[in-house]
Simulated scan of single mutants.
Amino acid sequence: MTKSRHIDALEKGEISFSRDRSDPRLKLEQYIAMQVKSKRTEQGLKITDVARIAGLSQGMVSKIENAQVSTSLDTLSRLCDAIGLPISQLFSNYDRPTGSAQMTKSGEGMEVVRRGTEKGHTYQLLNTQRGKKSSYEPFLITMDDASEVFPTFSHPGQEFIYILKGQILYRHGNQLYDMGPGDSLAFDAEVPHGPEELREVPLQLLSFILYDDR
């Protein structure tokens, strides 16, 4: 629903607060409760203050904030006026999709062993994502042995690397790239690639490998 349709439906009493439990979005009364309480506390108002300004009982305001009651448009309008929240703004984010991001805290990525991994050369898998058409793997790679001899890699997909610290001479096919902090490189991962020379250690880089599953 758009904002105007939400308000019109409230006025006509057409909105049902019983949403399918499988729906990841908040129920409407839960969403209203969250928005009202957040705005009230942001304004530094107590429930008693809001009740007095809006001409409502403290019990009603408390029930609305705890998603224990549905309310009429008139009551909701008075409550929004009391806390300085335009009623049109109240519904502005209601139909926004629920986020499903995956966060990995610093140092909590899973250390993995890949071909060519030696002492002083670690891969930390930060996350993994599998989709219908593509999947990706992001790695935090650390190298601190400048004398290490590295193999070349070749695998399906597209790869993107971003240098965080250190200096490296990186090979892709017959081309060599002198890279430092802030430099990035995107390439076809089926072409042989890998570190040619570590010029300043410790070296740390982010590597994103995108696989096409279509």
Results as ranks from 00 to 15, higher is better:
residue 135 S to R: 10
residue 132 K to V: 07
residue 17 F to G: 14
residue 202 P to Y: 09
residue 47 I to N: 07
residue 193 H to C: 03
residue 211 Y to H: 13
residue 6 H to K: 04
residue 47 I to T: 09
residue 161 I to N: 06
residue 119 K to M: 11
residue 53 I to K: 14
residue 13 G to A: 03
residue 190 E to R: 08
residue 31 Y to M: 08
residue 10 L to D: 02
residue 199 R to T: 09
residue 64 I to P: 01
residue 9 A to F: 06
residue 189 A to P: 01
residue 151 P to M: 08
residue 98 T to C: 13
residue 78 R to F: 01
residue 155 H to P: 02
residue 24 P to W: 15
residue 212 D to Q: 10
residue 62 S to E: 09
residue 105 K to T: 05
residue 21 R to Y: 12
residue 148 E to S: 14
residue 188 D to Q: 08
residue 135 S to P: 00
residue 32 I to R: 08
residue 25 R to D: 15
residue 69 V to H: 07
residue 31 Y to W: 12
residue 112 V to N: 11
residue 5 R to I: 10
residue 67 A to G: 07
residue 148 E to I: 05
residue 158 Q to G: 06
residue 25 R to N: 14
residue 89 Q to T: 13
residue 145 D to H: 09
residue 189 A to G: 07
residue 132 K to Q: 14
residue 150 F to K: 06
residue 213 D to H: 10
residue 135 S to Q: 14
residue 145 D to R: 08
residue 167 Q to T: 10
residue 180 G to P: 02
residue 46 K to W: 08
residue 158 Q to R: 04
residue 28 L to K: 08
residue 174 N to V: 03
residue 30 Q to C: 07
residue 204 Q to N: 07
residue 35 Q to F: 07
residue 185 L to F: 02
residue 43 Q to H: 11
residue 199 R to L: 15
residue 63 K to V: 00
residue 173 G to R: 02
residue 130 R to V: 10
residue 82 A to V: 01
residue 63 K to D: 15
residue 200 E to C: 04
residue 165 K to H: 14
residue 67 A to V: 03
residue 128 T to P: 00
residue 188 D to P: 00
residue 192 P to S: 09
residue 155 H to M: 04
residue 201 V to Q: 13
residue 122 T to C: 02
residue 122 T to G: 03
residue 55 G to V: 00
residue 182 G to N: 10
residue 82 A to L: 02
